[in-house]
């Protein structure tokens, strides 16, 4: 139910301004939502491709690890994994898409220089290491696209909620208020006209009575 306001002309003008602003807001939010939806569908395609690439890469990577563990031995695989120190560093930049802050994830710089000597290293283990580097990149790509997708999806939901709130609640509320104030003001104006008409009639009556008195005096 719309909030009750004093039925004054200034309130009516204020509500009309608010209505104009709300309509402009709805228009802007709808345009933002449309742009975000377009971006979202573009990303869905990327995300599906990234997921597919991840599935393929992980299948290959795990099969190569399977073969490395079998042919080179789990000890050789573990030994080479010991040479890798620290964690992978992922670069993250914040990008602004229609006011939505989404992370832009850069794949880690793995480099091609080995930290260990390849002499005597099991080729299958080296192959598995290479495949897992690819898997890491695929995983980061999926994480990046899906994070963007989620952020944009959330923003679309938020924008739709705002549009709905404006269209279903705020604007109808303002319209009701405008209608109420207008009807009260019109009623008041009508009342004023009636009062003025009555006053006018009374004044005319009084004037006519006075004229009649003056004419009677003159005859007498």
């Amino acid at each position: 139910m719309a909030e009750q306001i004093a039925p004054t002309r200034s309130n009516l003008l204020q509500r009309r301004d608010q209505l104009r602003l709300a309509n402009r807001g709805v228009d802007l939010l709808k345009r933002k939502r449309d742009a975000l939806i377009a971006e979202f569908f573009g990303l869905v395609k990327d995300s599906l491709a990234a997921r597919r690439a991840l599935a393929d890469t992980s299948k290959e990577a795990y099969f190569s690890l399977f073969l490395a563990n079998a042919w080179d031995g789990p000890e050789a695989v573990e030994s080479l994994s010991l040479a890798v120190a620290g964690n992978l560093e992922v670069g993250i930049e914040i990008e602004n898409i229609f006011g939505v802050k989404v992370p832009q994830v850069q794949p880690p710089e793995t480099g091609t220089q080995m930290s260990f000597s390849p002499i005597g290293a099991g080729p299958r283990t080296l192959d598995a290491a290479h495949q897992f580097r690819g898997l890491t990149e695929a995983l980061i790509k999926v994480a990046a696209t899906e994070t963007r997708l989620r952020r944009i999806g959330e923003e679309i939901k938020k924008t739709s909620r705002r549009v709905n709130a404006l269209e279903q609640v705020v604007i109808p509320g303002i319209l009701v208020q405008i209608k109420q104030v207008t009807s009260v003001l019109e009623q008041r104006a009508l009342e004023e006209v009636t009062v003025l008409k009555r006053i006018k009639a009374k004044l005319e009556q009084r004037e006519e009575a006075k004229k009649a008195e003056d004419q009677a005096g003159a005859v007498g």
């Binding site: 789990p74 000890e75 050789a76 573990e78 030994s79 080479l80 994994s81 010991l82 040479a83 890798v84 120190a85 620290g86 930290s115 260990f116 005597g120």
Partner: peptide
């Protein structure tokens, strides 16, 4: 190979338990 595994673990600061598997 065993000496290399130990050396790699020492280089990257891994524990003795990690070395065992290599």
């Amino acid at each position: 190979n065993n000496i290399k595994a130990i050396t790699r673990a020492k280089h990257s600061g891994r524990s003795t338990v990690d070395i065992e598997a290599g």
